[in-house]
Amino acid sequence: MFNSKKTMIAGLVALAAGATLTGCNETAPKASAAEASDVSRIAYLDPAIHGDKFGTREEKRNNPDHPYSSEVAGETGSDQCRTPSGFTEVWDSAEKHMNSAHSTYGYGQPISESAITGDWRLSALGDGTNLPPEGVGDTIARGEELFQMYCAACHGEFAEGNGHYLPLAGGPTDMTDNGGPMPVKTISNYWPYAISWFDYARRAMPFFQPNHPDIGDAGYLAITGWVAYTGGYTTIDGQEIDEDTFFDSKLLVKLNEEVKAKNNVNYFCDPRPEVHNVRCGLNGDKCPDAVVGNGKGEIKFKEALINPVTGLPQYNTNQRP
């Protein structure tokens, strides 16, 4: 089953050769400093497979064979991340489970796919699977109306958020760390997919009665259209959007491409472990400055303080709008 995931197998084999780390059995605490420091035999930490030594993030993104590339060409063309080699290898082998025989217990009851509908089939996938049929939808104007009725009380009239109730549109375009508060994250600047925005709104919102029958699939699509429109998506696939635009799953799939082009390109797969420390400082050894105190060997530190204005802990500030 894993032949599309050669890297994982390679990692598995490399590890199996060097270590016996499988199973969940209890062991007596063993402290062998020699063993612990011999990290090179562990494929998981092999810098050739892991970590920043393997090239820039840009290179990782553009090389589908890289274990941390976020594009792994699948049949649907949707973005996937591989299970990092080494993530499962210290556990029971997944492959072993897959390949061992199974004879039916027969405890369940067969069910037809067609019986799994409605609230049992909320998962809208990137390729359009499980989206409402084309033609089910409503105008952007209706989306705004519904938003004001069902959503604005918490998320704000302009989807700008309200205290801890999250903003749903807008936010900074510069998402880098400027030392100040964290940027707000919305469909405008962060969500990688419009389809999963629709998926979430329908399955979980409005908070007090999710998948609300009075909103319905058509209403959730219209709300998605309006929030995206408010959040700056004013043309979709070259088509100008306005209040009268009819928003259905056909347009949602196109919006999805716009959102992907804007935000999804910023996503990468898990690059950890990123820090490769050794167990320094034991038995008279002294750790290097880089891992002492502030990273320069100095004991300089910050303390927990209460913000005199808000009376709250100092870093609990509103997110950057």
Partner: peptide, 14 residues
């Protein structure tokens, strides 16, 4: 995870 350079990491399971 939103990293310092403005990129994000997803599927960080462990």
């Amino acid at each position: 995870e939103l990293y310092g350079d403005g990129s994000a990491v997803r599927f960080s399971w462990v």
